[in-house]
């Protein structure tokens, strides 16, 4: 293909792709935030809850982590529809991605909380803090800082895995590409562009989070490098 034709093609498809990218971002941001809130709850429930609460949290986390995201999205979108609970594709995707991410985030957080010496909790209690106060003011802030690298991984995974929402008809980046490509069969061109878009943004996200990590660094509160090679989703 001639260069000029390629650019024409690029200009034609770019607006559609940017629409898709917006949806991708929406999914990512909502899922990471909602997943974070649910994840914190799950982690605290798992560690500090009584037997029943802790059991429920463990069960939820294990089931979510033990099944593919796609299956979860299908259950929410097709499965629940069959018993009368109908979601739009985007609702189903937001719901599914948030729940999925919450289980992984809960596990990171749990690791971080358990990495904090128990003496911290004891010291807080001897100051007269309640258990909830100690968790909220002493343990959790430290744990959150330690979690930043894992959390940044999660953000990037989520950004990439929102592409799966395409399979339940959400019109995000990958889906828009499919629509364009099915019209003119230029799969290579369109998907190389999409790949490039994903690459650029994963790079930008990891740069931003790296900066954040340095910014919130507290001397002596080291991040154990151990889990950096594990992927989560």
């Amino acid at each position: 293909m001639a260069t000029s034709m390629f650019f024409e093609f690029l200009l034609d498809s770019l607006p559609k792709l940017l629409d898709g990218l917006q949806v991708t971002f929406l999914l990512t941001i909502v899922a990471i935030l909602a997943g974070f809130l649910i994840g914190v709850t799950l982690a605290l429930g798992r560690i500090y809850g009584n037997k029943i609460i802790s059991g429920i949290c463990i069960g939820f986390i294990e089931v979510i982590r033990g099944t593919p995201l796609l299956v979860q999205l299908f259950i929410i979108y097709f499965g629940l529809a069959s018993i009368g609970l109908v979601f739009s594709p985007i609702q189903a995707a937001l719901f599914g991605l948030s729940l999925n991410s919450s289980a992984y985030q809960a596990e990171y957080l749990r690791g971080s909380i358990q990495a904090i010496p128990s003496g911290q909790m004891v010291a807080a209690r001897t100051l007269g803090m309640t258990k909830i106060q100690s968790i909220g003011t002493i343990v959790l802030p430290q744990a959150l800082r330690i979690s930043i690298p894992a959390w940044s991984n999660e953000l990037i995974y989520l950004f990439k895995y929102t592409s799966i929402a395409y399979l339940i008809q959400v019109r995000e980046l990958t889906a828009e590409g499919q629509i364009i490509a099915s019209r003119n069969f230029r799969y290579v061109e369109i998907y190389l562009i999409i790949a490039l878009i994903y690459l650029i943004f994963t790079f930008i996200i990891s740069e931003i989070v790296d900066r954040a990590e340095k910014r919130f660094h507290v001397p002596g509160l080291g991040v154990p490098k151990r889990a950096s090679w594990l992927r989560n989703t």
């Binding site: 990439k160 895995y161 592409s163 799966i164 395409y166 399979l167 990958t174 590409g177 499919q178 799969y187 290579v188 998907y191 190389l192 999409i194 790949a195 994903y198 690459l199 994963t202 790079f203």
Partner: peptide, 10 residues
């Protein structure tokens, strides 16, 4: 940096 689904399609 690229989602699996995009790799599949490519």
């Amino acid at each position: 940096g690229i989602p699996l689904i995009v790799i599949f399609i490519l």
